[in-house]
Design a protein around this nucleic acid. Structure first.
Length: 461
RNA sequence: UCCUCGGUAGCUCAGUCGGUAGAGCGGGUGACUGUUAAUCACCAUGUCGGCGGUUCGAGCCCGUCCCGGGGAGCCA
């Protein structure tokens, strides 16, 4: 089998090459009477390579079929380009049409709207923008693993199908093998005893509870995988299936947790700036002109930390005209978060120690009996990118809280066991991977940073 | 789910006062050229989101449903 060259490697070549094989998809073609120029892309990088094909070479008879979108293979010499605009070009000695793209190929040599490209999500990675997006996505996912691996944090594969609702709230997707046309009933309720697991099953909304048990075994762990929320959310920041990074660290408190969140975000921002420069540049030029400034800002100084109580004071003392008046005890509204991160601090900000009545049962109660050791990392234009807390490690307090919220301790027996045996302070958080991608690329709709977005009433592809 | 703005050619959009529809890009044909989203000439674009209503007549007005954008809530 002949060695096939990636266009990314060819464009970085130190010297000319003779008789190589290159394969890819035609982006555009410019014909002259005696020869044609082909802009070829193989997905290995943003840039195309220019191919020059003279009409005398074998395979040229198919040139008119090598339209935008067609797959071709060619033998060529890599030569210094005599034309302007590129260092290297391929002088083809043989052309072969592998897969034609008829004239109804929907991608054209012009800008398309994101809304249109979403309707052809199976083809959009062939555009510059989405090719860049999904290369960055792949690299960044790997960088997350590298970050944790290099710090001795173990990757735990938490289950996708679960029997308990981690948050004690939030809509979940049911998982069932029951025949929905004739659901078995008992006392006019669904008899899940007849279902696959013999009990009600759902898709996970978070791997947190699972990963907590593992941090109390392996010390530092994380989970990174898809999570599912059946909320009827119709916003540019929510999807029903998204990827979440959830580290959980034993012997760590809220301060350690905030430090880890900041370190992770800074590491990943540095990573894309250093390793995805070409793809990133596309977003900086065509999507968000303020992108590089923002990334430098994030990569720079520490994120300010402010308690929820102080944050509410800042909001109340500002002259900003909010639709919802900031008030202690109520959750921060989007407009409040945006004010804090975009106007007041003008950088990512960590808000911590929230009122316990607006937070989940597993968060550690503070001595003031009013707040819990929770923290959110808020970033400009996106809002919450990380939500986490130090966990309640005291068995009695945790049980009491579960009961207060109307949950059944029996459902959490295995979770409570971890507080019974060798319990220790620990903390963790969840970072939305798609929101990180939005932050890093400046793309404003979450549907455009995941290959095939799942949203209410939308399950194509 | 709520508020709001939209849905017209393959794509991006215009369409005045209600009188059966237009541009650019893309596509086709030809010319020309080491071209760079090439250029020039010519040609064809259509269930005006669906259904119902008002009207002599609806892309335009009314009702309803579907889909999309922006915002809100929920959160990652």
């Amino acid at each position: 089998m002949t060695h096939k060259h990636r266009i990314a490697d060819l464009l970085n070549s130190e010297s000319p090459l003779e008789q190589i094989t290159v394969q890819g998809w035609v982006r555009t073609r410019r014909d002259s009477r005696d020869f044609s120029f082909i802009e070829l892309n193989d997905g290995s990088c943003l840039a195309n390579i220019q191919v020059i094909a003279e009409q005398t070479i074998p395979g040229f008879e198919s040139i008119t079929l090598m339209t935008t979108g067609s797959a071709i293979s060619l033998r060529a010499d890599l030569i210094a380009s005599p034309g302007k605009g590129q260092r290297w070009e391929l002088k083809a000695t043989r052309l072969e049409l592998l897969g034609a793209a008829p004239e109804d190929f929907p991608l054209q040599k012009k800008r398309h709207s994101d809304e249109f490209l979403r309707t052809i999500a199976h083809l959009r990675p062939r555009t510059n923008k989405y090719g860049a997006m999904f290369r960055i996505r792949a690299r960044l996912a790997q960088a997350i693993h590298d970050f944790f691996n290099s710090r001795g944090v173990y990757w735990i594969h938490t289950p996708v199908i679960t029997g308990a609702d981690c948050e004690g709230a939030g809509e979940m997707f049911h998982v069932t093998t029951l025949d929905l046309a004739k659901v078995p009933l008992q006392d006019s309720k669904v008899n899940f005893d007849k279902d696959f697991f013999g009990k009600e099953a759902n898709l996970t909304v978070s791997g947190q509870l699972s990963v907590e048990t593992f941090c109390l075994s392996l010390g530092k762990v994380y989970t990174f995988g898809p999570t599912f929320r059946a909320e009827n959310s119709n916003t540019s920041r929510h999807i029903a299936e998204f990827w979440m990074v959830e580290p959980e660290v034993a012997f760590a408190d809220l301060n350690d947790n905030m430090a880890l969140g900041q370190e992770l975000i800074k590491y990943l921002v540095h990573f894309v700036m250093n390793n995805c420069a070409d793809d990133l540049d596309l977003f900086a030029r065509f999507v968000d002109p303020t992108l590089m400034q923002r990334l430098c800002n994030i990569a720079g100084e520490d994120f300010p930390r402010v308690s929820y109580t102080d944050a509410v004071s800042i909001l109340q003392q500002s002259n900003h005209n909010f639709v919802y008046r900031p008030e202690w005890g109520k959750d921060l509204q989007s407009e409040h978060e945006r004010f804090l991160t975009e106007e007041y601090f003008q950088r990512p900000v960590i808000v911590h120690d929230y009122p316990k009545q607006i937070k989940a049962f597993y968060m550690r109660q503070n001595d003031d009996d009013k707040t819990v050791a929770a923290m959110d990392v808020l970033v400009p234009s996106i809002g919450e990118i990380i939500g986490g807390s130090q966990r309640e490690e005291r068995l009695h307090k945790l049980e009491t809280r579960i009961i207060e919220l109307g949950l059944k301790p029996a459902d959490y027996w295995w979770y409570l066991d971890t507080r019974k045996y060798g319990s220790v302070q620990h903390a963790g958080f969840g970072m939305g991977f798609e929101r990180l991608l939005m932050l890093v690329t400046g793309v404003s709709n979450i549907r455009d940073v995941i290959p095939f977005p799942r949203t209410p009433r939308q399950l194509d592809f």
